[in-house]
């Protein structure tokens, strides 16, 4: 009995130390072969998970209990327990997985295989490959409609956004975008998908019903050569009003009015900014800065960089998990 009381008391202490809104931020470090775990309370790295070779894409599954990490040079996706950081198993991802997206229902996972011009569909429970979908050359970006009705893959050398039916695994449309499309992000209401083109320097706003590019966003930063502006990661706030675009070697995150497509601000972050991820409440946005080995913390409401967190070598992907 006393032992039980002790356990209860311990739990209470733990709960007090971590209020309900505390969370963890997981950052994949491409060169370091690690995932840095940042505590949201202190904004410091509290743990480092050793992972496979060249970790890039990172996401949560199993209602936040699992952390999925694409380790491209090991040709697999590793699955970690988000509490114990224990490696639970790997997934048959196909060769060189880079980015992936989880179906809104929690299963399956759609993985871009850069080297084989394929999107691999993996059942997370059975850990089996459900389908391999031939797409363009060097598939990279993966997006999913909020209602799960369509998957979008971008292919970097073909320069297209491929719209894929998640039931039949057939491509239903191909939309030509600018050079080296890297990322696809749906608006929360599903009305648009935004595709960034790293070398083209633009973001194409595509209507997923008509498959037409309805607008192309361009960027201009005084004093910076246009070639340095290389859009990669894209995130849109849950109210659909504001979009953030990571601009690579421009070392900035663009803030865009998602209704008018007007670029309203450029936030100076670390060097070579790759990907972006929101905090669970959406109040903060984290950017991975590949060259400066840190993560910038952006206050979404204030549109201001409020903190910089040193992480591992060559940070690439980021995802936050409520505690």
């Amino acid at each position: 009995m006393s032992r039980l009381l002790g356990a209860v008391a311990f739990c209470a202490v733990v709960a007090a130390a971590h209020p309900a809104d505390a969370y963890k931020i997981f950052v994949s470090n491409e060169k370091g072969n690690t995932v840095s775990v940042i505590d949201s309370e202190t904004m410091e790295v509290v743990d480092t998970i050793k992972v496979g070779q060249r970790p890039r894409g990172i996401t949560l599954a199993a209602e936040g209990k699992h952390l999925l990490v694409a380790v491209g040079d090991d040709d697999t996706v590793e699955v970690f327990d988000t509490d114990t950081y224990e490696r639970l198993h790997t997934l048959p991802s196909g060769p060189d997985p880079e980015l992936f997206v989880l179906h809104p229902s929690g299963n399956p996972l759609y993985i871009a295989n850069e080297d084989d011009n394929l999107v691999t569909v993996v059942d997370l429970e059975a850990r089996t490959v459900l389908a391999e979908i031939p797409v363009g050359v060097e598939p990279e970006g993966m997006g999913v409609a909020p209602d799960g009705s369509v998957i979008v893959n971008t292919s970097e050398t073909t320069n297209m956004a491929h719209f894929i039916d998640p039931e039949t695994f057939e491509i239903v449309a191909n939309v030509l975008v600018d050079q080296r499309p890297r990322f696809a992000e749906f608006k929360p209401d599903g009305s648009e998908v935004w595709v960034s083109a790293e070398i083209g320097g633009t973001v194409s706003v595509i209507d997923p019903k008509t498959h037409e590019v309805k607008h192309k966003i361009t960027f201009e930063i005084p004093g910076l050569r246009p070639e340095a502006i290389q859009p990669v990661g894209v995130r849109i706030t849950s109210d659909g009003e504001t979009a953030f675009v990571a601009l690579g070697p421009a070392n900035r995150v663009a803030v865009i009015d998602a209704e008018t497509y007007e670029v309203q601000d450029y936030l100076l972050v670390g060097q070579r900014v790759w990907q972006l991820g929101f905090s669970p409440d959406g109040d903060l946005l984290f950017s991975t800065n590949g060259v400066s080995n840190d993560v910038s913390v952006i206050d979404v409401g204030a549109r201001r960089v409020i903190d910089t967190v040193p992480v591992g070598e060559f940070p690439w992907g980021v995802v936050a998990r409520p505690e």
Binding site: E156, T157, N159, Q179, R180, I199, G200, E227, Q230, P249
Partner: peptide, 10 residues
Amino acid sequence: FQLAGFKGQA
């Protein structure tokens, strides 16, 4: 016209 040639710019 732009060609992506793995050199970091068009």
